[in-house]
Design a protein around this nucleic acid. Structure first.
Lengths: 242, 242
DNA sequence: TGGTGAGCGGTTGCATGCTACTCATGGGGA
DNA sequence: TCCCCATGAGTAGCATGCAACCGCTCACCA
């Protein structure tokens, strides 16, 4: 957090602080379960309590922190149940959006998608976990963006950010990384064929796999927690997609 | 807004003010396009500017108002495009959630659903538009809640609130009200048969119809705006549901 | 007459003072 | 020894002060 001097750009302090705190959480700099005070954060950032407090309220609305009255703020330790809920939503939303994106994509868009895909591969080849995750996010959000529904894209971005607080450590294992890469390869192929149905299926597969890897990873790190119950929940909604 | 004295309960002033302002917008008391100032709102509510300001930031994040730097705040006039985007999301999300709800529902839940359904009919019979909308919302949110995904339910509630700012005047026309009632009847029937697939279809039909009525209504009230383009967009995503 | 800039009313944005609340601790009483 | 309550340290929540900023009007000048 030492690098966190608010820039002097035109953006309001509150929004700058919001972004910084969010970044601090998703980067793992502020750890789940840990206690922080608005006063302390304000001092560390060199601003007054007000913008920090406002930023924390916004982050609370996003579900990243919980403000405890007169006690301080705590980075939320996302439960497996909540992770599953978030993925349930993503698995419902992303396939149709991506399919629509495949329909609407221009040739130029397809080129750009391949560029973004290349960046994932580069980052993965370099063994840079965080960069891989970031590139993956940009790839998917670009694809979703093609559907022309800005609110859906923004919603998905938020949902992805939420799980990042737990996903950093668990996702990038060797074998699983290869599976995810294969998934993406398939998405690309379907895109290039402009086979929207196949895109939807591939995206669904990809997100579902991500979810299951994450659930398995988290439950493995948490003694006395069975992944089984949660794994079955993942498909419980999406299997009803009309 | 005269009835808006913050209660003295345990809840924080900020959250009380947030709820009041949100209610004021959805009830039409604060009108889209109109300009308001935090100072004025604070005086009217009898509180200081701080909780009002914080409430407005939260509402901005919800997409209900836009804060204009050093100028005041404006209730967002939702464009047809945004309305369509919101409904695209709802049409994707609600059917599978409702279908899962149908699976998970207890007998007691089914009774409760029927009670809520009765309330819609009562309100509609009394010709009470706002109450009908409110009851309709409760009905659907209860059904979605049965799916056991609190985040999805909350998300849907927010999406519904957003269109309420435009929906008040346009929805409750005589003929369309009957169609919507028929839709709900069908949802209920499918629920009682525990036919989750039929529930999904009925919900999808219902939400889609609501969307089209709203789009048609808004475009009719707006000279020089063709509904056609927007009506076709509504199904553009959901047709890809896997 | 047309254009320009200085002043003004009004607003947010941020800082800070104060109060009430929460929790932990330690001392005193049973 | 154990329990209870008083006390204190630390916090968020709210009110308020102040400055920077925006857009508008209107007078002044070319």
């Amino acid at each position: 957090m030492s690098s966190m001097q608010p820039l002097t750009t035109g953006a309001s302090l509150t929004s700058q602080v919001t972004d910084m705190l969010r970044a601090a959480v998703t980067s793992g700099e502020m750890r789940p379960g840990e206690h922080y005070s608005a006063i302390g954060l304000a001092e560390k950032l060199g601003v007054s309590r007000t913008p920090v407090r406002e930023a924390l309220q916004l982050l609370e609305k996003e579900g990243i922190v919980r403000i405890e009255k007169n006690r301080g703020v705590r980075v939320i330790q996302m439960s497996l149940d909540e992770i599953v809920q978030i993925f349930q939503i993503r698995i419902i939303l992303e396939p149709p959006a991506a399919a629509r994106g495949a329909e609407a994509a221009t040739d130029r868009d397809l080129e750009q998608i391949q560029v973004l895909h290349g960046r994932i591969l580069d980052a993965a080849a370099a063994g840079d976990g965080p960069r891989t995750l970031q590139a993956d996010k940009e790839f998917h959000l670009y694809l979703l963006g093609l559907a022309g529904n800005a609110r859906l894209t923004e919603l998905d971005r938020e949902l992805r950010n939420l799980v990042l607080t737990r996903g950093l450590v668990t996702i990038p294992s060797a074998r699983s990384g290869q599976d995810l890469a294969d998934d993406r390869r398939e998405i690309i192929n379907a895109l290039l064929r402009r086979d929207s149905k196949a895109v939807a299926l591939a995206v669904r597969e990809h997100v579902t796999r991500t979810a299951k890897l994450l659930v398995a990873g988290v439950s493995a790190h948490t003694p006395g927690l069975s992944a089984e119950e949660y794994l079955t929940k993942i498909d419980q909604l999406s299997k009803h997609c009309t």
